[in-house]
Amino acid sequence: MIIKVKDNHPRIDKYLFKVLDDIPMSLIQKLLRKKKITLNNNKVKPSDKALQDDKILINYKFKKDDKIPKKKKSIKDKIKYLKSIIYQNDDFLIIDKPPNVSVQGGSKVNISLKDIYETLLDIKLYLVHRIDKDTSGLIIFVKSRFVASDFSKLFLEKKINKFYLAITQNKIKKNNNYLSNKNKDGKLMKLRFRFLNKIQNCFVYYVFLITGKKHQIRLQLSLINSPIKNDNKFSSNKNKNNLCLYSFSLSFFYKNIFYNFRLPYEKTLKKFDF
């Protein structure tokens, strides 16, 4: 495929994302990394400029599965995703992530949350932390590499407080509100929890991560026979309902301002399928 650039654009990846409106940004960046895209017969980086009359050659045949599903491009979905922006300023935005959407692109991901908001806002976004595809709730995207560096440091120094709301099938049989166990690689996982109440034979907890391992909350609770409700990965109780794990609170200081994002408890519970 050959594309002739019609106007100047500061980044070739964003230009292609605009022109190839049904191809996710994650795939475009992957093709650029693998040198499947050239600019005027030369190798090109995602951050390189695309100037008027430049010729872009894409040495890749797009497949049906590569394309963004039409339903993702509907006005209804765009409005839904825009309404999920809890807050934004010049540095970052806070999004209430829906369940079953991957945060970042990958080989099996048609469109990621990052792709969606880069499309809607027409800006480059940077990830500074992740939550599972099945998990819903608050997540941070930042708008520059400099801010990404700042937030990565805040996470590394544990200066960002993040609380989850978890609904389990069984009551956690621990009296000290502290849980410590190891994953299959022998790495220690630690969290704190607080019981809130019981709803329809399920148990509701606040959860605070002390360490940050992959699938940590889901894995730790399953290891003590208190799996999260509707967890098809770590529970034998398989169903199609949404996972009952929600990132419901984020708080931190940035540029001498304290930010505290927290969704109402009752509103959060309504998002779950019991």
Rank of each mutant, 00 (worst) to 15 (best):
Y81Q: 00
K43M: 08
I56K: 02
K55S: 12
Y117D: 00
V19I: 15
K34Q: 14
I111H: 01
K49T: 11
P46W: 11
T119L: 09
D77P: 02
K83M: 09
V19E: 15
K61G: 03
L16V: 09
F17C: 10
I85V: 14
G106W: 00
Y87Q: 12
G106A: 09
Q52V: 13
D115T: 07
K78E: 15
K35M: 12
S84Q: 15
F92I: 06
D90M: 10
I58F: 05
I94T: 00
P98L: 04
D66A: 09
K45H: 13
L125V: 04
I86K: 06
L93H: 04
G105Y: 05
D53S: 09
A50I: 09
G105T: 03
N42W: 02
Y117F: 11
Y81L: 02
K80C: 09
N89F: 03
K72S: 14
K34H: 11
L57W: 05
I37D: 01
K35H: 14
K43I: 11
I123E: 14
L121I: 15
L120S: 05
L57N: 10
G105S: 10
I85F: 03
N42L: 14
I94R: 03
L31C: 01
D13R: 07
K18D: 07
I58T: 12
P99N: 04
K76A: 03
K67N: 13
L20N: 06
K64L: 09
L32W: 05
T119C: 05
Y126T: 08
P69C: 10
I79L: 15
K36V: 07
M25Q: 09
K14F: 11
G106F: 02
Y126Q: 04
Y15K: 01
Y60W: 05
L32T: 02
Q88T: 07
K14N: 10
L125Y: 02
K55Y: 07
P46K: 14
L125W: 00
T38F: 09
S112V: 03
N59K: 13
L31R: 00
I79F: 07
S47Y: 04
K64A: 12
R33K: 12
D54K: 08
I37N: 09
Q52P: 00
S74F: 02
K14E: 07
K43H: 11
Y15G: 07
K73M: 09
P24Q: 15
H129I: 07
L93P: 01
Y60T: 07
L93R: 03
